[in-house]
Amino acid sequence: MAQLPENLLRRAAEARAKAEGIPVEEALAEMKGEAPPAGADAAAPSAGAPAPVAASGGPVRDLDAESSKFGVPRPLLDRGMRARARKDGTAVPAMAGAAVAASPAAGKAAPAAPAAPGGPPPAAGPPPGVRTQRLLTVVKAGAIQGTTKEPQDKVNVWPHLLAIEFVALLAMLALLTLMSAFIDAPLLEFANFNQQPNPSKAPWYFLGLQELLAYFDPQVAGVLLPTFGMIALMFIPYVDRNPSVRPSDRKLAFSIFTVFFMAASILTIFGSFFRGPGFNFVFPWRDGIFFDDLKTLLE
C-alpha cells in the first residue's frame, strides 16, 4: 500500500496482530493486500485465517474498475473487501477479468476461477440488527478551508518573547519602586471649600484642556473639543482608507496625527509649567513652577 508510510503500517499491523492473536507478518501482509507468508495460516488457528477464496459462481468484483469509477485507491477497496469477507465468514469475491493477474494485491484470489460478472450477491449478509459500515469515499488530506497565507518567519513566544517581556516588566517595576522610594506623592493641606488655591489646576492630563480654556469659550474648550477629539480618534480607522502601513505611503495621515499629537503635548506642557497665579503666563525659570503634581519633587 503505497499511501501509508511503512512504519505506520507496521505499527497498525502489530496492533492488529496483538488484538486478534495472529502473527504480525500475516497482519502486515493482509494490510498490504499481499499473500500472507507461508505457514501463517497454520499459525493462526481461528480468526486470523483469511477467508477461503470464492468458488465458482460466488460474487465477483472488479476492483480496478471500481477504483477508477469511485476514485478510491485500490488497496483500500481490497482491504475492505477482505475485511468484510472475514467478518461475515463468506468467501472473498473473485476478481473479474484481467485485474486478477495484473494486480499482486489480488493475492490469493488470483487462482480463483473467473466468474461471470453480475453473479449473485453474497449469500450471508450481516446478522439482523448488526450495523456495518462502508467506506464511501476517501477525502484527500488537506485543509477544509483553503488558505493562501504565505509562510512567515516566526519565533516561539517561549522563551524569546516572554523573556523580553519579563525584562521590560522588571525594568518598569524597578523604575516605579525607585521613583516611589525617593519621591513622595504630594499631600497638601486638608480640603478647604473656602480657600481656593491660586492657581487651581486640573490633573496634568487635563491641563491641555484647561490651557484651551484660556483661549476659547468653556463650551468649546471644555466640552466640544475633547468630545470631538475622542470621536475623531475613534473614527480614524474608518476614515483612513489607505491600506498601506508604510510610512512613505502615509505622509498625510502622519502629518495630521503628528500635528495634533504635538499640539496636545505643547498645550499640556504649557498649562503645566507656564501658567501661574490667575492662570497667567509665567516663565518657570523666572517665576517658579506652579505644578503641584510634582510639588514634592521640586521642593
Binding site: L188, A191, F193, Q195, Q196, S200, K201, A202, D292, D293
Partner: peptide, 11 residues
C-alpha cells in the same frame, strides 16, 4: 487635600 479638591473641581 487641597490639591485633590480643587483639581477635581476644575475638572
Amino acid at each position: 487635600d487641597q490639591l485633590a479638591l480643587w483639581a477635581v473641581t476644575v475638572g
